[in-house]
Structure formats: structure tokens, C-alpha cells
Amino acid sequence: MTTPLQVTTARLRIPVTERDHVRGPVDAPVTVVEYGDFQCRFCGAAYPNLAEVLRQRADVVRLAYRHFPITNVHPYAEHAAETAEAAGARGRFWEMHDWLYEHQDQLDPVHLSLGVEQVGLPPDEVGAEVGRQAHADRVRQDFVGGIRSGVNGTPTLFVNDIRHDGGYDLAELLAVVDAAAGA
């Protein structure tokens, strides 16, 4: 008897709450949750497409971002994630998030510090906070929640709690969001 191949449809196990970083209307019928790694080039490729989906479907979709740094492959990913959290503690999460994805080749400590300054935050203060790992627990909680939900790499998107196992080009993302909105 041959063992059947097993593919399960992964579902988001950690619901979106006020602790999440969310962009878009709070009552949007479609919620996209992204598990991302700021040093992952596939996440970088998906970033402008997700921004465009939010622009074209402004009343329909909101995006929640959670951290999933694969630090053994991406040595700058953890610091980048914790820096985004430090910015979030100062009300600038999305500004930092955008800077990180728009400067993926500049995530080394020197350039990262310049980036913090560019989004209008005190680089020394933020750097010290990240240095004493003040936001490490938060990043780890995102990561662990992700693996429990079946995140198997980055980016992983959940569209209304169902894992999106397709691609990340604009047309496909729009189609997935529209399908979820019509469901």
C-alpha cells in the first residue's frame, strides 16, 4: 500500500488583535496577515505588490505584519525586526517597515542607524533598545505563532485566516483578495 501524499490547508491560529501592526480600515472585510523577514528578497519582491493591493482595494483589505526572521540565513533580519518594533513603540512601525523593505541592501548596523534617523527617530536610543533585546520577545512570539500556523518560509500570507499557497504578483494577490471579499 502506498502512503498518500499529505497536503493540509494551513489556517491562522493566532487571531489578529490590537497587538498587531495593522494598515488599512479596521472593519475591512478582508484581512491579509503577512509573516515576513526584512532580509528576504521574496518578501522584498512582494512588498510593492502588497502596497498596491492596499491602494487599489483601500476599502476592502487591511494588512497585518508579523515577524518571521530566519536568522541563520539572514544575519540582519533579527535586528531589523526588533528595530521595526522599537519604531512601533514610538508610533512609527509602518514608516520603519517601509524603509526596511525599500533598503534591503542596507540592513547592516551603520545603514540601519541612518534609516532610523531618516524615519525621524533617535538612532542612539533605538540602537540601545535593540542592543539590550527589549523587543526580542515580541519578535519571537510572532515567529512561534507563525510556525504553529504552518508558516514554512517567507513571505507567508494568510487571507482571512487561510494560508495563501500561490504567488505574490499583483494580479494574483488582487484575485485572491477579491475572491475573499466576495466569499
Binding site: 502512503t3 499529505q6 497536503v7 493540509t8 494551513a10 510556525i147 504553529r148 514554512n152
Partner: peptide
Amino acid sequence: SHLSPPEVNPGVDGIL
């Protein structure tokens, strides 16, 4: 035990 298609990363959730 779990058998995945060769091209599908099974993740960690089933293990945990």
C-alpha cells in the same frame, strides 16, 4: 509520520 510532495515544505506545525 507525514509524507509531503517533494516540492512542498511541510513546515513545523505537525511536529509541534
